[in-house]
């Protein structure tokens, strides 16, 4: 059977020590038995490594940051689509999702398919809404509070015990042992991600993550749990292993069926010492370690593509337990002419 030709545009090409999910998603698509994909990389910066990596992207276009305005980003995307038609768009950053979700109809009208969560789903799983989320879906979550003013920090001791977690609305999480440390992290986070800053109860235990894909009708198309074995200073997994834990899969099913989640997601869970599962974050997109799921037998990026094309996808029923991933860094040599072309013409 010949493979179907398809053009996929995606973001998340920053394959750094805090990698975006772009490269592993592309690797999954490249390994698909069904698709012969042409990959268009959408880069926010000229030095995102995947732009220059061999056999990763076929063509790269620079795009403006979502903070420049949704219209500016979407117009650039439509301009790219006009000369290089896109079949499916896979956004890979939390911070850009809002712009793409809001523009889903415009993109669809132009012929660009996506498979994204709804705005309601996106909002209710926000870190700042986690306590309500826990109540609504009957899952354990840490007590948390959203701060919008620095003078609220002093009062935290009324509701929290130290240490506690201080988190940005999209990224970054720090452990704080006292008011001064909360203040320091609050300032750092607001400068980078704005408000609110989320303060969360710190739960002692082992952190485990699940990558999953929901079909928007309440079905889990695939789910693979992983424990980080090696963690960078930024808290990112540098090595991990797939787990055999039915409780984690049941919890994932509960969240996906309850929310009727549409698209990729990552559940960040802390398993406390008494084996209670606490959801500490729900990321609304495929995580950077998704290639472990592909390696363990669930090609979730391929399944996401099929869902975006409106096809029925049969749920995966298993995966290999004990599969590991180990990241590595590499020095890629390229010529300044490549960098020059991308910087001046906005494409490569």
């Amino acid at each position: 059977m010949s493979k179907r030709k398809i053009t996929v545009a995606l973001t998340g090409l920053n394959n750094t020590d805090n990698p975006g999910p772009g490269v592993p998603v592309i690797r999954g698509i490249r390994e698909s038995g069904e698709f012969d994909a042409r990959i268009l990389g959408l880069a926010y910066e000229s030095l995102e490594p995947a732009i220059y990596m061999d056999r990763v992207v076929d063509k790269t276009y620079l795009v403006p940051y979502p903070s420049d305005g949704t219209d500016v980003l979407i117009n650039r995307l439509l301009e790219i689509h006009k000369k290089d038609p896109i079949d499916v768009l896979i956004p890979n950053f939390d911070a850009e999702l809002y712009a793409f979700m809001r523009s889903e109809k415009i993109l669809e009208k132009a012929g660009i398919s996506t498979f994204l969560p709804t705005l309601e789903q996106f909002e209710e799983r926000h870190k700042s809404n986690l306590p309500d989320f826990g109540k609504k879906y009957g899952v354990k979550v840490p007590f948390s509070k959203a701060l919008t003013r620095a003078d609220e920090i002093e009062d935290l001791k009324k509701d929290f015990e130290y240490p506690l977690m201080v988190k940005g609305k999209f990224y970054d999480a720090y452990l704080a042992y006292n008011t001064e440390q909360v203040r320091m992290h609050y300032n750092k986070i607001t400068a980078k991600w704005g408000l609110p800053v989320i303060v969360q109860e710190f739960i002692k235990g082992t952190e485990v993550n699940v990558v999953a894909l929901g079909d928007g009708k309440g079905n889990t198309i695939g789910a693979v749990p992983m424990r980080k074995q090696y963690i960078t200073e930024q808290g990112k997994a540098w090595a991990g292993i797939t787990l055999d834990d039915k409780k984690l899969l049941d919890l994932t099913d509960k969240v996906i069926s309850g929310m009727k989640w549409r698209g990729g997601m990552e559940l960040e869970i802390v398993k406390s010492f008494d084996n209670e599962l606490n959801i500490i974050e729900i990321n609304p997109r495929i995580p950077a370690w998704v290639y472990l799921a592909v390696g363990a037998g669930q090609n979730l990026p391929e399944a996401l593509l099929k869902l975006a094309l409106g096809e029925e996808v049969k749920p995966y029923t298993g995966y290999e337990v004990g599969k590991m991933f180990i990241r590595y860094s590499n020095d890629l040599i390229t010529d300044v002419k490549e960098f020059e072309k991308l910087s001046t013409q906005g494409e490569l």
């Binding site: 485990v208 992983m226 424990r227 991990g240 797939t242 787990l243 055999d244 337990v321 004990g322």
Partner: peptide, 18 residues
């Protein structure tokens, strides 16, 4: 039941990943 013990003395717990 799911604990694997190899002949080389490597023990793997697939639930915790340890």
């Amino acid at each position: 039941k799911n604990i694997a013990v190899s002949e080389t003395g490597f023990v793997f717990d697939p639930t915790s990943g340890e």
